[in-house]
Nucleic acid binder design. Structure first.
Length: 484
RNA sequence: GGUCCUUUAGCUCAGCUGGUUAGAGCAUCUGACUGUUAAUCAGAGGGUCCAAGGUUCGAGUCCUUGAAGGACCGCCA
């Protein structure tokens, strides 16, 4: 038997329902005066006020209405007599579907109608969805993901599902997690005493993917324009608020495109997603903006955000990203005040140095004060598949740097010339035989192509104004932690 | 992998140069009130001060080691 038809809170708050009888279901956020329930069903950050006729209601039912309880209420929508809301539901029937034990001790409902620390909520990630902050974050995350598919679909890109288990260990993007079906206490050994993966499930050593790029390249050289959007895994021992061991990445790959096309695509996509979130998640952004301002009140002026969240997002849409070469960036950094005064932990001395995050931050937050695209890095600090420039020293790479986040996109024009690619692989000691399937694209109908990787969680950090990447993915995985 | 910070009630925190019975707000429980907006008022219960060791007449406070959490750096998205 189906549950009686219910109307979502989001719908009630914008629709014409006064005088109508309907049913709602959700979780109690607060219960005041034995009379007013703030009911949230996740469809919006807002709550619907339920007015209980406490004089005629069963006292046993009223006792079960506590913060966190799931209830179903039938009643009539009326204009509110109070000030905080325009409409409310006058309850005629209340059914408690699930109580939330409020007694002290183990089993107590851990969410109270008050501010909790993000660290505490991280420990109860299975319940943090029910808070305003995480409700807002994950509604925004959904809309951002939807906007990404929408953007690429509208442009005629094909969504390609790259494999999560990969037989390649040369994706070149970091340490990999091993995938095996072996009994770890009794692994088959070969004659050389090493683990014999030929007896494993796949008949070879396999890993979790660190990037879908190589597979996306294969597809791009047939469909012209493709993208992947899936989980990726890095077994790096990273202890920062910007890294996860499991994160979601968007990787478009475009044939017949060069570095400039690549930058145009990335900038257009970022603006599209940010605009979609601004257009569709206004209430959630309002809440997060206010939360951020409150949180920053205790910080000194120079550590606060230069502008409120929504204004920052609008600014990002309205501004052309600053595009400059690595070489020009080094010039600016070499001659900037902090460098000359020794304020940088790592002084910029000469061309070829890898930029530290303090340098990137200076360029984005102090010098240009807007998103920056850095291009044409020295070949020695970039991956083997990036296209060699005419100068023989730099490659057609591009990194997009965002204020407060740092690198949000990393991409390049790919090396499509077989001889040049082979030479680079030899230089960087990457074995040709393992990559022959990839090299086939350069052997058969190769063409100029380009692509990039966008860290989805880093984009969500930016649009929500959150500070820790562990708070923008439902169940974060990082060194020492894989809870839930 | 490196550097630094934190750990006191269910939650958020205060606790001064070591001093005798460790506090507040919220939450919980009891009662009052009943058009509230994180309701209000009165009362009650609730503590292995992260753990182990040390210094001291005396340690929540000082020292050592460990654990857990966090920030930053490196690796990158």
């Amino acid at each position: 038997m189906a549950m009686a038809k219910r109307t979502k809170v989001a719908e009630i708050l914008v629709g014409e329902y006064i005088g109508k009888e309907l049913t709602v279901a959700g979780w109690v956020r607060s219960f005041r005066s034995n009379q007013f329930i703030a009911l949230n069903d996740g469809s919006t950050i807002k709550t619907l006020q339920i007015v209980v006729d406490f004089e005629n209601e069963d006292p046993e039912v009223i006792k079960m209405i506590t913060v966190g309880a799931a209830i179903k209420v039938t009643g009539t929508i009326v204009e509110s007599l109070g000030r905080g809301q325009s409409v409310e539901l006058k309850a005629s029937n209340i059914k408690v579907l699930g109580v939330a034990d409020a007694e002290q001790g183990p089993g107590q409902y851990p969410l109270q109608p008050k501010k909790h620390s993000l660290e505490y909520l991280r420990e109860i990630a299975h319940l943090r969805f029910r808070t305003n902050t995480f409700g807002a974050i994950f509604r925004i995350r959904h809309h951002a993901a939807y906007a990404i598919h929408e953007f690429f679909h509208n442009k005629g890109f094909l969504y390609i599902h790259a494999p999560i288990i990969t037989g390649s260990d040369a994706e070149g993007a970091g340490e990999m997690f091993k995938v095996t079906n072996f009994d770890m206490d009794d692994t088959p050994k070969g004659e050389d005493g090493k683990v014999d993966f030929s007896q494993d499930f796949f008949g070879k050593a396999t890993n979790l993917t660190v990037s879908g790029q190589l597979e996306a390249e294969l597809a791009a050289l047939a469909f012209s324009e493709v993208y992947t959007f899936g989980p990726t895994f890095r077994a790096e021992n990273s202890h920062t608020s910007r890294h996860l061991a499991e994160f979601w990445m968007i990787e478009p790959e475009v044939a017949f495109a060069d570095l400039e096309d690549n930058m145009d695509l990335a900038e257009e996509m970022l603006k599209y997603v940010i605009k979609s979130v601004l257009d569709r998640c206004g209430d959630d952004l309002d809440f997060l903006e206010k939360r951020l301002i409150d949180e920053e009140k205790v910080k000194p002026m120079n550590e606060r955000s230069p502008m409120p969240l929504k204004e920052k997002l609008q600014f990002c849409i309205d501004t052309d990203f600053e595009r400059l070469t690595y070489t020009r960036a080094i010039d600016i950094l070499k001659n900037c005040k902090p460098n000359k005064k020794g304020k940088f932990q790592f002084k910029i001395e000469e061309w070829g140095a890898d930029l530290q995050s303090e340098h990137e931050r200076y360029l984005v937050e102090k010098h240009f004060k807007k998103p920056v695209i850095l291009t044409d890095y020295p070949k020695d600090i970039k991956a083997f598949y990036m296209r060699m420039n005419e100068d023989g020293n730099t490659v057609g790479a591009m990194d997009i740097l965002f204020p407060g986040i740092g690198e949000i996109v990393g991409g390049s024009q790919r090396e499509e010339r077989l001889d040049v690619l082979l030479a680079r692989m030899k230089e960087m000691d990457i074995h040709e035989d393992e990559m022959s399937w990839f090299l086939d694209t350069r052997r058969f109908g190769t063409c100029p192509h380009a692509g990039f990787g966008l860290g989805f969680e880093r984009l969500i950090l930016f649009v929500t104004g959150m500070a820790n990447i562990r708070d923008v993915i439902p169940f974060p995985r990082f060194p020492g932690s894989a809870e839930f």
